[in-house]
Design a protein around this nucleic acid. Structure first.
Length: 312
DNA sequence: GTCAACCCTACCAC
DNA sequence: AGTGGTAGGGTTG
């Protein structure tokens, strides 16, 4: 029945741990079926399987579109998506040399890499992430795709859809109401207004992806203009979609770690405040950027996940 | 002494 | 598990 053959991903197994990366709050689009991870990338279903010493993948093209005429090099798509050119083991060594705490944590969480995700999908997803849990965000993203996305194909009894483009969410004001019905709450107008702005920008001939060449500061500034995007969301999107590897998002988990382990070095005054001020946020973020270096965001994600697992 | 121009914390709705 | 907005206090020049 299924004659699609498996291919072997050209990325050393030590460099990647699917079970840690895929469900830990970077992407909210991967579903696990048995020992397979399934998602939609570039309008086609991608299936991943982690074996003992390598990762296998295969893909299913969109049934809704005639993509057969333009074959997609899935290996390239995955190399790009996993930032495969970045050598994780080297980064871990460097982080460990710079930071004693990282050195103690890292061995327990190997293969954590930053994904290079679609800018719009990432932006939209992280606007939805505020004051929210991975489980619920995943649910929301699932329903926004089902409601506003395009059908791709069905695999293992599950229908897969693309992530809606900005214009798909600009149809009318009823989008906000629909999003509220889907459980987006106060995030509904943020998503809608941001879609409107991004679409307008696209009509001017721009694409979010073109910002990938810009500096971290430029991208961050641009993103923070958008409704529902503050420092934390901007930093997540910078890191996970715009190649700003030095961006260090400080969420509540990182804030806990900083207070516990880095407060003295980061010169954090012992405030009892539960919330981060903008300036304290920037102080912490740049301190960690100085500590970990150009790929600080990659170190952040290791500690973030260690904290996530601890509380789970 | 007073007054913008901040910047911070707290607080709450979304 | 954040953002946007407000109020109230502190600091600076």
């Amino acid at each position: 029945m299924n004659r699609i053959t498996w291919n072997q991903l050209k990325l050393p197994i030590k460099e990647i741990s699917l079970d840690i990366i895929l469900p830990s709050g970077q992407s909210f689009r991967w579903k696990k079926h048995g020992d397979e991870w399934v998602s939609v990338l570039n309008e086609l279903i991608v299936i991943l399987r982690q074996e003992d010493d390598h990762i296998l993948y295969r893909s299913i093209p969109s049934q809704a579109r005639a993509t057969l005429t333009t074959p997609i090099d899935v290996e390239s798509v995955l190399q790009d998506y996993f930032n495969a050119s970045i050598k994780l083991s080297k980064l871990y060594r460097e982080f460990g040399a710079r930071d004693k705490y990282f050195k103690t944590i890292a061995p327990l969480f190997s293969g954590i890499r930053i994904l290079r995700q679609d800018p719009w999908e990432t932006l939209c997803s992280f606007i939805c992430s505020t004051n929210n849990s991975i489980k619920r965000i995943t649910q929301m993203i699932d329903s926004i795709c089902l409601t506003f996305g395009t059908y791709v194909a069905t695999y293992d009894g599950v229908a897969y859809y693309t992530f809606p483009r900005p214009e798909d969410l600009c149809a009318s004001g009823s989008v906000v109401q629909k999003l509220r019905e889907l459980g987006f709450g106060y995030r509904a107008p943020y998503v809608y207004k941001t879609a409107l702005q991004v679409h307008e920008w696209q009509l001017l001939g721009h694409e979010l992806a073109e910002l990938r060449g810009s500096s971290y500061e430029k991208v961050r500034e641009f993103l923070m203009e958008l409704p529902g995007v503050g420092p934390k969301v901007a930093d997540c999107v910078c890191l996970m979609a715009f190649d700003c590897h030095s961006s260090v998002p400080i969420d509540t988990h990182m804030w806990n770690i900083v207070q516990r382990r880095y407060a003295k070095d980061a010169k954090i005054r012992p405030s009892k405040s539960k919330t981060l001020s903008k300036s304290t946020y920037d102080d912490i973020s740049s301190h960690l950027r100085g500590l970990w270096g150009d790929y600080a965001g990659w170190a952040q994600s290791v500690l973030f996940i260690s904290e996530l697992r601890k509380n789970a």
